[in-house]
Every structure is written in structure tokens, then in C-alpha cells.
Design a protein around this nucleic acid. Sequence first.
DNA 1: TACGTTTGTGTAATCGATTGCGCAATTTAA
DNA 2: TTAAATTGCGCAATCGATTACACAAACGTA
Lengths: 341, 341
Amino acid sequence: MSKKTTIYDIAKKLNTTAATVSRALNNNPKISESTCKLVRETAAEMNYKPNKLALALQSGKSGNIGVIVPRIDSNFFASVIRGIEDELYPDYHVIICQTHEDEKREIENINTLLNAQVDGILMSVSNVTSENDRMIKRVVEKNVPLIFFDRKKNMDGVSSVTINDYDGAYLATKHLINEGCTRIAHFSGDRSLEIFENRFKGYKQALLDNEIEFNENYVFQTKSSVEAGRAAVEKLLKLENPPDAIFSSSDFAALGAIQELKEHGIKIPEDFCVFGFGNEPFTKFMELSISSVDQSPMEMGEMAAKVFLEQLNNPKNLKMEKKVVLNPELHIRKSSSRHSL
Amino acid sequence: MSKKTTIYDIAKKLNTTAATVSRALNNNPKISESTCKLVRETAAEMNYKPNKLALALQSGKSGNIGVIVPRIDSNFFASVIRGIEDELYPDYHVIICQTHEDEKREIENINTLLNAQVDGILMSVSNVTSENDRMIKRVVEKNVPLIFFDRKKNMDGVSSVTINDYDGAYLATKHLINEGCTRIAHFSGDRSLEIFENRFKGYKQALLDNEIEFNENYVFQTKSSVEAGRAAVEKLLKLENPPDAIFSSSDFAALGAIQELKEHGIKIPEDFCVFGFGNEPFTKFMELSISSVDQSPMEMGEMAAKVFLEQLNNPKNLKMEKKVVLNPELHIRKSSSRHSL
DNA sequence: TACGTTTGTGTAATCGATTGCGCAATTTAA
DNA sequence: TTAAATTGCGCAATCGATTACACAAACGTA
């Protein structure tokens, strides 16, 4: 069992001091070339690896950044994290925390990450309670770089990377209109979160811009699940004047909708068009592939990481606030293609 | 900007020393109750949080564990990681590393994690080169707990958590036989990796046990992709005596196979049955849902984490080697159900 | 009164690195 | 030959915690 080599071990072997070894290894110009070389060789021989913990304690930089997401086993967040990791490797390590959409857990996570002395926090917000707000503000006060991605919060001095949910929704709705749909329903998700509110607004505006009346009965705040989609469709079909299309803020709800519509014998896309959001892998795998708005998660992760790096190089007294908005991309598939593909 | 409070700050305020503060906070019985209480109150007032880096350096335990996976944006690995994180929270933090199936990156990752002084490494092996083997052995020599999950390697003193790939394959193949299939092909993946070799063996044995001749021409080492599945089917259909079923080691290849078969006008499951492996979310979403072997990724992650914890409590001189094998579970769906569901 | 215990705190070393300051030895300039 | 400047390296503090050891005060006991 090989004990770890430290600079002291090297110093002892060379009859010198740790200071010299440290300087030699760091290419300090005050050290003669001969000693420098000797130290480096001995270090290699003894298989010396610097102890990052010691370095971290000394410098105050841990080399870790924390990423807080609702959960990791969703294609979207996993891809974002991949983007972050790819961008930061090998300078920073990514520490993952999941909130499971639980406000307490979100607070705990922030706390633990701060204690662990992370050099920055990248998070997708789950909760909008004031307690969480306070906690998040503490991060900013401590001058720990904080960046929101996807689910952001409007907060002074905090940068964010999001996609243009409004545009995505607008374009998707517009597409449905172009396909000849006139009674377009919307599954909106929890609109207290900005992203869902923005999608709703984009949807609504697209209707208005095309002289289609907005109908409140067509809007449901569904959860992002197959079951929620099915349940909402059931209600929609009972309306006096049922819709002929759905723009869903969730691919899962869109899938549920399609399943339910089929069971009612409704033909897609001939009689009914469906558009999802998120571009989950399954949407393109279905025989009846589902149209969806892509959120470029990898790119989002990369951008978030880049913004973090920028923020690091920023003078501390200077508050930097950068809002990056990525363009969504429509993936038009069978579920909404009445014409040709 | 609130500077961080240290035990020295607390000591100064109370006109005592850091040692006393430290002891008081750690409930050391040698400290009088009055001082203890006073210290705790002051600590709370000053919003003291212990610096984990200092603790880590002192104790030699970082409180981080490294997880190395081929990639994180796959449902399987993301779910495993979720299991790990859930099990270890909040005692340990998970640091993610991706190899992208690249051997150099795998070596780098191990190195970085060791330098970062992680308290353990949980990995799913990508590569079988001797260079990687050597690196992995170094981890064991350093007495850093190492646990393989899913893709393991046979190595002395290393524990592992896997599923019984052999059984999974055997049962899936058996099921196809029960459905009346007699010419069963196999997409095997890279058989230099244990998991794929074991699946192949299970497949083969099931054939033999049921008096079906094993046909080498029916076996393809496909990649785990839709395209690979399609390509393999194309070749299979050109055979003199084409198969009437496929057991695929990859859900993605199975999906590709189904797509290709359909384009050839072959009816599933009537004329041809397909069984996948991995139980990716999309398999159950398809209209023609795909039968698949579930690998219980969450459970696998949890188990791996548990084994890690056990290993920690193990006396260092005692080599512990635990091999946990989870039972796979068949999810039988339309793609292989000729009878009823 | 004197001595041994117990109790509660302080001193200082330690974990493994970095770095300002000081001091020899050497080189350069006068 | 002597003073000044440069070069190369060692000493010791620092980052923020823990902990073995020492030691004084308070106590009990003979």
C-alpha cells in the first residue's frame, strides 16, 4: 500500500525544503534550472500527485461546481449536465444534486454545496417560495457565481441561460394554424414557473396574431405525464366545441393525449394535430412520430458553463448579469403534418 | 459581502481558543455544559458553517465519491446515478465523469478523481486495454474503495453490482421460443465486454435447452443504435432461411430492427417477434410496444452505493470482495406477444 | 495541611500545499 | 578591494479544522 507522496517527501529525499519543491514544480523563476529539473524528475519518479484538497484549502478554490436539477434521470437534464461536464472538463468537476422538486431539498442542496466550497452553482429552479429566494440570495451575497438554466428566476446579479420559450410556443402554434387547425388547445404546465408562463404567452399571441379567438376552456395546467395528458383530452372531448389540435408544453402529456385520442378513434394528423415540447427521444421513435420543440439541452449546458467561466474572470466588485437566450428549434413530425413531410 | 465565519472568529468573540470551540461543537464530553451551550449559540448567531475543505484535508476524507460512466445522457446511466445519489445523500456527494467510451479519458478520469481525493470510485467499465487495467489496479492498491456496476471486470478485491445478464437473456429467449419462434437471431453488442458475452451465452443455452440448433449466421455484434439494428435486419432477411425472431442486447437496435421489418411488410408479432434489453422508456411508449429486459438501474445504483458503504467500514487490511447480482425482469409487450397480453 | 483526582481549557502539531520575507553566496560595478 | 545588486533557497505563516498533551483550578480524601 503506497502512501501518498507529498512535497515534503520529495524535499527530504533531495535534502531541501518543501518551499523549494513547490516553487520548482510551479515553474517559479526564482529557482535555478538545475534544481528545477532535479525536483521534477524526482517528483515523477516518486509518482507525486498534488493533493487537491490542500490546494483547495490554501487557495479557497475547490475546483468543483455544483449543479442543482429537479432530477437527473430525465433526458433533458441529463443532456444539460453532459453539456456542462463537457465544457468544464477537466478544469472543474461537476457535483450533482437533485431536488426532486422539493423545496426543502433545494435549500439543503444549496447549503451543502456552499459548505463544500464549490466555486459556483448552476441551477434549474424548482420552487418559488420566499424561503428559497432568501437562500438563493445568500449565494449571491457570498459572491459565489450563480447561474440559472432553463427554469430561471428574475433576480438581480444572476445570469441565466434559457431558450426562448415564447418563440418556441409561438412558432409551434403558428405551425398548427398553418396546417389548418383553428381550435387549438394548450397544456401549459405550472404557470408559476416562468418557462411555462412564457410558452402560454407565445401560444396565446400566435392565436391573436392570426385572428383566432383565445378560449380559456382550451387551456389546462397539466403535469408532465402521460396520464395527465390522457385526462386532459378526456375533458377536452366533452366540450361543446372540442378542439382540433393541442400544443402541449410537455412531450409526455402530448403522448398521453395521442393515446387517448386514438382510443376515441380520432385520426392524427388528419382530424387532430399534436405538438409537444422538449423533443424527448421517444418523440421521434414512435411510428406516429410526435412534433416537438427542441430545447438544445447540450448547448444550454455548454453555455451555462461558459457564462460561469466568464463570471469567474469578472472583477468581484462588478456585478455581472448576462441573460443568454437560445433559439428553440421546431422538429416537425407526423403528429402535426397534414401536408407533406 | 459576509466573510465566512471560522472557529477562530467564534473563539475571539468568546475570549477562548479554537480548540474549545471545536470541541464544544463536536459535543466533546470534556467541555462544560455552560461553555458548550454558549459556543453553540454564538456559532448559530454568527452563522457559522464548517469548512468542509479544511475538514477533508485534516481527516483525509473528502466526502466525495466519483462515478465514472460512458455517458450520462442515457436513461440507464442517469438512473443508476440517481440511485447512487439518493442512497448517499447527504453524506457523500457524487462527482460525475464521462468516458465517452474513450480509453484515454477513462484513465484521465480515474487520475483526476484520485487527485481530488475521492473517498471511493464507482465505475462502469468502457475499456479492456491493459493500460486501463493497470490504472484500475492502482486504485485498489491505494486502498480507495472501488466498485464496478453493470459493466464489470473480473479483478481481485473489487466488488461489483450487476444484473444477471445470462438469466435475462435466457428468459427472454425462452419466452420467444414459447411464443412459437424457432429461428431466433441475436444482436449481441461488443462481446469483449462481459455483459454482452453473458447475454450471448444465455441466449445460446436457451436454444440448446430447447433443442433448437444454434446458428452462427443469426448472430451480429451490432452497436447500440437504431441504424445498426436496421442494417443487421437487412442482412438477416437476405439469408436463405431468415429468422422469425430477434433477441437484441440493445433496445435501440431492436427498435431499428422493427422499423426495418415493417418496411419489408413483415408483421410483428404475428410473423416475427422482437425482444430488447434495457427497458428504455421509449419501449413502452410505442404503439407497438417493445418487449424488453429491465435492468433495474435505480436499484443497481443504490446497491452499488451500499456496497461502497460496507467497504468503508471494512478493516483496511482485510480485502473484501462482494459480487451482487440483481435479477433481471422481463417486460413482455406487444412486439413479442402472439398470444395475449 | 498536603496530596492525588477530576474537570475544563489552552498550547501546539498536523493535514499538504503556497508565498512573503530574509539571508547567504555569488556576480557585477565602482 | 569593497560596496551594491542579483540569484537561489530556507524560514515560517497561512488556509480551517482536529486532537494529543500539558496544566491550572477545584475537588475529595487522609
